[in-house]
Each structure stands twice: as C-alpha cells, then as structure tokens.
Nucleic acid binder design. Structure first.
Lengths: 210, 210
DNA sequence: ACCTGAACACCGTTCAAGT
DNA sequence: ACCTGAACACCGTTCAAGT
C-alpha cells in the first residue's frame, strides 16, 4: 500500500495542517495506514523526507508569460516562487533551514543567471547578483511567513498588511519613535507591493554595476 | 538554584553545542540540575525560552565606530548583526522562524530608519527601505548558515567559500550550465565580500528613489 | 511561589522477526 | 525487498503533591 508519492502526499497534508513541526515520520505512516518504520523503505530519515517534500513544491513552470523585459521577468519568477511558498507556508522554515541544493534551487538559480546575463551583467556580476536576488526573495518570504502566528494557510494579504500596521503602531513610541511612526507613513510594509518594490530597488543597484 | 539567567546560559550552551533542535526544556533543566518542570516557573513554554534566548543575542552596541557616512554605517550595523549570529549559527533558524518583534528587532529597525532618513530618504522610502535591508541581511545570514552542515560553530570563512565553490562545480553542467560555470567566475559567492556587495547594490537602488 | 516526581501523549530511530 | 510490532531513548507539557 505505501509508496513514495503516497507518503509525500500525506506529509504535505500534515505540513499544511500543522506546520513544519507536524511533518513526522509517524504521522505520515499513520495517515497511509502503515507502521512507522514502513516510511524508512522510501526515505533514509526525516531529513530526506523533508527534502523530497521541498523538491515537490519547487518545480516552477519553465515559461513565465506576460513579462516583456528581463527585469519584469525576474519579478514574475520571484512572484511565482512567492506564490508557491505562500500556498504552503510551513515549507518556508524547511527551505530556509537547509542547504539550497537539488534540482529546484538549481533551476531557480539558473534562470536568474540567464535573465541577469540577458540584462547585460557580466558573468561575475550575474553570479553575485543572482545570489543577492535569491537572498532577497527567500528572506522576504521567510519574514512574511514568520509574521503569521499559527500553522495553517496564510490569511488574505490585506489582513496581513493591516496586522503588520497594527503591530507597528504598538511599538513603544518613546524608545522607537521612527518605528512607531512608520505605521502611519508606509504604503504597505510586507505584502506583494513591498516585495516588488524592494526587489526592484535591488535590481536598480544591480543594473548600475553590470 | 535555578534562575532565569542560569537557564538561559544553559540553553545557549545547548544551542551552540547541538543547534536549535538541541534547545530543550529538559536539557536546560538537566544542565542546571533541576527537574524539567522547574523551567516553567521562569518561561511559560518552550517558545518563550527561545524568544528570551534570541533577545539575549540581539543586544547590538549603541555606537558603531569607524563609519563616516550613512551607507557605511548601515553596512557596519549589518556586519555587526552578522557577526553576532555567525557566533551562534543555531540561533538563525529561531530568529527567522518567528515574528520580528521585541526590543532587539525594534532597535535594529529603528537604527536603520534613522540612518536611511539621514541618507535623505523620505519617511515612506525609509520605512520600505529599512524593511528591504532587514530582509536582505537576515536572508543572507540564513542562507549562509543553512549551507553549513552540522550544528557547531561556523568554519572559517575561506573554508566556507571553498566549500560553496566545490558544491557549485558539482552541479550538472548539462542542465544548469551557467550555475556550474559560476564556480569559476565568481569572486566569492557567500562570505563577507558577497554580503557587502549585495547590500551595497540594494543601497544603490534605495539611494536612487529617495 | 517554587520545586519534585510521576505521568501522558508524543517523537526519530533501531532491532528482531516475519513474508 | 518490504512490512509489522516492540522497544529505546528522547521530547513538551500536565498533574498531584510537597515546602
């Protein structure tokens, strides 16, 4: 009855329902009606199960449509990764917690390298730049996901932006005046708008040093 | 015998010796020779212990010396945070895994806001910009720490750069040609040099949109 | 208030045994 | 090869009882 795919399905359900800590060997085994040790036939240990789960979520589509230049193509690619991970917030701590290797991260990095090269960056700048973009994209998603308490799906974006604004306005204004004031002046602070804005500022900087 | 400080000392030892998963209520209790439940007198639950541990690592010094303009001051501040976290790599998953509130993150954000405002950014751009910088800094550190297997202290930087280069050169060159080639063209890729370069590109972009 | 000690409901992983 | 079932050495947290 058990199979690699079936175990991963079960693990993904656990991830979505209870967050990264809910992904357990025993839980996945129980979900498919097998003994705990049955999982070890398909995955060497819990880390291997987590890696396989991540790989499954990182198969970004080969073609991105609706982008007319390299900068908006980078943005679309980043937004696509962001969408994937927002759909499974529990995966983010797993992704950020382990080394970025394997086909998923390689595909993402390769596409960034290609786009930055098309944008006119020399190989060294493209290499450094693609890593900087990866850092920004994953850091943004990580902080955004970390902001949300609980384990289930992310609440609607407007709600998250409001929650962030509310949290900022509760910062002690005496000791952190600018931080408290930021609740009033910011346009969005977290959310897609902030994500795109920050990414474009980084791309601005990269374009200055081709 | 137990006290809040003593428990935190023990928890920090556990963190440094065995990584974030080694920080346990029972482990800290055992280290100070108390029963597991004694910890609950000082910390409501494990999450509270982790938060207190993080707060202890994030008391950045008020003055940064040796910086003559706002950009290098931002860089020095970011480098200081990076040093702190590099000294306790196990803390990074904890920091990135929870919401960025509490005095430590607030102080860091407030100082970024002040520096960006000094740099001529209007309040909205400073707010968005400071968040972008935070994202970049924490994302960089997270990816760099995640790259290192095992739980102890980070190996020397030259070693980590070499390891990253070696990992890149083992990427299948047929499917990911640019990624594999990056092992040869990059200057450092991870490490302080890459960190500073990426941060400066982001600051370039921020300076363009004051 | 603060501690101990036992207990409950979990973990990952290992071992011995089956088919 | 792949599974079961029992076991080992852990968890966080709760409960009852002490002082």
């Amino acid at each position: 009855m058990p199979s690699e795919a079936e175990i991963l399905d079960a693990a993904l359900d656990l991830l979505d329902a209870g967050g990264p800590k809910a992904v357990t060997i025993r839980g996945a085994a129980a979900a498919i009606g097998a003994a705990p040790h049955a999982v070890y036939t398909y995955f060497a240990d819990k880390a291997a199960l987590e890696r396989a789960l991540l790989e499954r979520l990182l198969d970004l589509p080969e073609k991105i449509t609706g982008a007319d230049d390299w900068r908006s193509e980078v943005e679309q690619l980043a937004l696509e990764l962001r969408r994937r991970l927002a759909a499974h917030p529990g995966a983010v701590p797993l992704l950020i917690g382990g080394p970025l290797d394997g086909p998923g991260p390689w595909r993402f990095g390769e596409r960034l390298l290609t786009l930055l090269t098309e944008g006119g960056l020399d190989p060294a700048a493209a290499a450094r730049g693609s890593y900087a973009v990866m850092v920004f994209v994953l850091g943004s998603i990580a902080l955004e996901v970390a902001d949300v308490p609980g384990a289930g799906a992310l609440p609607p974006e407007t709600e998250r932006v409001d929650a962030r604004r509310a949290a900022l306005s509760e910062v002690p204004a005496g000791t952190y005046p600018r931080t408290a004031a930021a609740a009033g002046v910011m346009a969005t602070w977290v959310g897609t708008e902030q994500f795109r804005w920050g990414l474009q500022r980084l791309l601005d900087g990269l374009a200055l040093h081709p």
